[in-house]
Design a protein around this nucleic acid. Structure first.
Length: 203
DNA sequence: GGGAGGATTCGCT
DNA sequence: GCGAATCCTCCCG
């Protein structure tokens, strides 16, 4: 995986990240997941994006070059990881919503705790970060080299296996078809409409 | 300085 | 399926 693969609009990159491999190496060991579910966030043009109202301290990583990690805290407890896409200075990113653990399952289980197994280990953006050991300290890390978190190409995914649908849990632009997943994969999280969702224009 | 609002998760009904 | 937990960020006054 290199800059040229990622220097495109988020909605272009998001389906291409299905099947790609996200790896975190620590002193405790290595956990590796195959990405099974993504969502595109189109920066200043996207009412649901953190970057919709411009650059702030929190979302600064989204404005960086493609291939950086943007990590934010959700609801006080959970971490969510995004792959920054597009040219430097443009705040587009792809949220990694779910993955299948293919290496370091014991360590992932230890991090998740109490009886979480198999497909549930990295299902949901917060759970995926827990399984991988990704936290706010990884915000801005370079996934293409020089950090312990890396993104690499995986087995090619047939186009017929890719499903498209509305994003999960967003209250604005909830009808945008910006969510991509592998058909029938047990690690993909369930769809949920935000209780605050309002009508919006599709894209 | 105050308050509203989450790109969520889990447990209980 | 629903709602509480939980706390940080941003916007507004």
């Amino acid at each position: 995986m290199n800059t040229a693969d990622l220097a495109h609009p988020a909605e272009t990159v998001a389906p291409r990240l299905l099947g790609a491999v996200l790896t975190h190496e620590t002193a405790e060991g290595t956990v590796r997941v195959v990405i099974t579910e993504t969502e595109a966030y189109s920066g200043s043009a996207d009412p649901a994006s953190h970057a919709y109202r411009g650059r702030t301290e929190r979302n600064a990583a989204m404005f960086g070059p493609a291939g950086r990690l943007y990590v934010y805290r959700s609801h006080g407890l959970h971490w969510c990881a995004n792959v920054v896409t597009g040219p430097d200075g443009v705040a587009t990113a792809v949220l990694i919503r779910a993955g299948r653990v293919v290496e370091g399952e014991d360590l992932a289980r230890e991090r998740r705790g109490t009886g979480v197994e198999g497909p549930r280990l990295a299902r949901g953006p917060g759970n995926l970060c827990r399984a991988l050991g990704i936290t706010g300290e990884h915000n801005g890390a370079d996934l293409l080299g020089g950090s312990r978190v890396t993104l690499s190409a995986g087995e090619p995914v047939p186009a017929a296996q890719i499903r498209v649908g509305p994003r999960v849990g967003v209250s604005r632009a909830h009808d945008w078809q910006h969510r991509f997943s592998l058909a029938g994969d047990p690690t993909v999280s369930a769809y949920r409409l935000s209780p605050r969702a309002k009508p919006s224009n599709g894209a």
